[in-house]
């Protein structure tokens, strides 16, 4: 296979800490292999910065295989960059051409304050999960799978919702900075299974309340979240959450 090195101009958001004012700084990187991932390209840039005695760019990452949800970069106007159903760590440099200028920004949302450079604080998501994203039944030992019959469609829909990796791209993409796609994935995943049933009503009510408290906006069904989600979480989960919420509102004590 032909190995091609490309030269790029990067405009990267640099910010010392949460309270300081940030700014874009322009960097040049040369001879970047198109087989590199976007994060590997950042590693190269950071080594270059260290050699120049400059401070490397802070960015979040962990698994680098598309499953942990840490890599949060808003690349050229789209969370996780130009590819569909993809995370930043799985974005490869063949998505770009020699001479391109790439603008990289952190997730922008009041509820996700910038900690440093491209790193934002996403603990708001953890607190939303703590408000109800669990089941409090004693699961005991693993039981025979067939002893708990679950409709195939529900099992599939629940599994599809459980794919959410909590990356926050949906919030970053939404004009309202709404966390509804994330929240609806968490609510749907449990609402569709018998294990989630005992806390079904309190879960949706408490998680919505926590989401509002964290300072996320209200959903207006624009669909920007679904279009950028690396796990293709469906917008219909939001409608399911709305139904769960309305039923809880009408029937709870």
């Amino acid at each position: 296979m032909e190995h091609k090195g490309i030269n790029l101009t990067l405009k990267v958001w640099r910010q010392q800490n949460t309270t300081s004012n940030g700014e874009f700084v322009t960097y040049q990187v040369k001879d970047i292999s198109q087989e590199m991932s976007f994060l590997e390209m950042f590693d190269v840039l950071n080594e270059q910065l260290i050699q120049e005695d400059k401070e490397p760019i802070a960015f979040d990452h962990d698994c680098r295989e598309g499953i942990c949800g840490m890599c949060s970069m808003y690349i050229d106007g789209k969370p996780h960059g130009p590819w569909q159903a993809n995370t930043t760590c799985q974005l490869h440099m063949r998505a770009f051409n020699d001479g391109d200028t790439i603008t990289v920004e952190p997730w922008r949302a009041q509820a996700f304050p910038v900690l440093k450079d491209l790193v934002v604080d996403r603990t708001a998501f953890d607190r939303i999960i703590q408000a109800g994203g669990y089941v409090s039944v004693n699961t005991g030992n693993a039981v025979d799978g067939n002893s708990l019959p679950i409709n195939k469609n529900d099992a599939d829909a629940s599994f599809a919702a459980a794919m959410c990796i909590g990356c926050g791209a949906c919030v970053a993409a939404c004009k309202n900075s709404s966390a509804m796609l994330f929240l609806s994935a968490k609510v749907s995943h449990l609402a569709l299974l018998p294990q989630g049933d005992p806390e079904r009503q309190s879960r949706v009510v408490n998680m919505v309340a926590q989401m509002d408290k964290e300072g996320f906006g209200a959903c207006t069904n624009t669909g920007a979240c679904e279009a950028t989600c690396p796990k293709e979480i469906s917008l219909s989960n939001i409608a399911r959450l709305n139904q769960e919420y309305l039923l809880a509102g009408l029937t709870s004590n």
């Binding site: 106007g77 922008r108 304050p113 309202n176 979240c225």
Partner: peptide, 18 residues
């Protein structure tokens, strides 16, 4: 909803998804 973005907005806006 407009106030929820925070103090700094995006330099490049995301318009393709909606």
């Amino acid at each position: 909803n407009r106030s929820k973005r925070g103090t700094v907005g995006y330099a490049v806006s995301y318009s393709k998804g909606s």
